[in-house]
Simulated scan of single mutants.
Amino acid sequence: MRDKKELMAMSAPQFSVKLAETEAELQSAQHLRYRVFVEELGAGGALVDHDQGLEKDQFDPFFDHLILRDEAREGDASQQVVGVYRVLRSDQAVKAGQFYSEDEYDLTVLKNSGRKLLELGRSCLHPDYRGGVAMHHLWTALAAYVFEHEIEVLFGVASFHGTDLHSLAQPLSMLYHNHLAPEDLRVRAQPDHYVDMNLVPNDQLDRRRAMLEVPALIKAYLRLGGFVGDGAFVDHSFNTTDVCLIMDTKRLNEKQKNIYTKRVAR
């Protein structure tokens, strides 16, 4: 009979991160995205494949897809993919015709900056791996990618679940009052669907409540020294309210930057 320590050691995750190189690896990422975005959050989309359980769109062929695998997890290779990040460099966006988030945000200020950009998106973890070290492994791999490609500005939309602006007034207003991007990074929601985030005056904010209602991923970007763009976007197809997050590698919080990039220098 194995004791408890042996059983825990046997079930300990064995993480590895790589870029998807095959169609099968890409579909493994899309399968996890389906579980999280479609089954959990109620998202949809024209190219979602419900029969095969794949969340995909027309931009996937142009993105690089970071996949986090737990090689100790039971099942085939596709079931071992427990985390996903997709990333799009400026040169890839040229081939795609645009950045994904340009339908939601005017990115002119970033595109005219002459700096190397990287768009982040579709970040998700399998429910069994949230709240642990799995996200750290993905972020470490992302840091290595940023270092390799000499990226200067990272950005991408991040989401609050739901589209009820009244219920999101506190956290959206807190982001506006405390984390609005400086003008040289301040993208703005496209005018035809611009949603003002300044819904509650600064002196009426319940800051503790507001921060508790901010999703963990957005909090992580803020801790690194990230900013938000001007205006939110209500995405009814994904059942979310989106904000645009921007991180300037030169402005990153030094303490957090060292934690984030410490493995890159090894």
Rank of each mutant, 00 (worst) to 15 (best):
Q27I: 00
V187R: 00
Q52G: 05
R208V: 15
L110E: 00
L7C: 09
D206M: 11
P127S: 15
N202V: 13
R115K: 07
G162P: 11
K95M: 05
Y105D: 02
V195Y: 07
T240E: 09
N112T: 03
P171D: 11
E71P: 02
T163F: 09
M174T: 12
T261A: 14
G75K: 07
A141V: 08
G97T: 02
E21T: 04
G226E: 03
F155P: 02
E55A: 07
D91L: 03
K255A: 10
V84Y: 04
M135H: 12
D235K: 06
L172H: 06
K257Y: 13
G97Y: 00
R223T: 13
A265L: 15
A12P: 05
H149W: 09
M247R: 06
N198M: 11
H149S: 09
A96I: 00
L199T: 08
L252I: 12
S123D: 09
E254V: 10
R69E: 13
T249S: 05
K4R: 15
L54D: 02
F147W: 13
D235P: 10
L107G: 01
K111N: 05
G114H: 01
K262C: 15
L110S: 00
Q170Y: 08
H137D: 11
A134W: 04
V48M: 05
V234M: 11
R130I: 12
D57Q: 03
D242E: 14
A43R: 09
G83V: 07
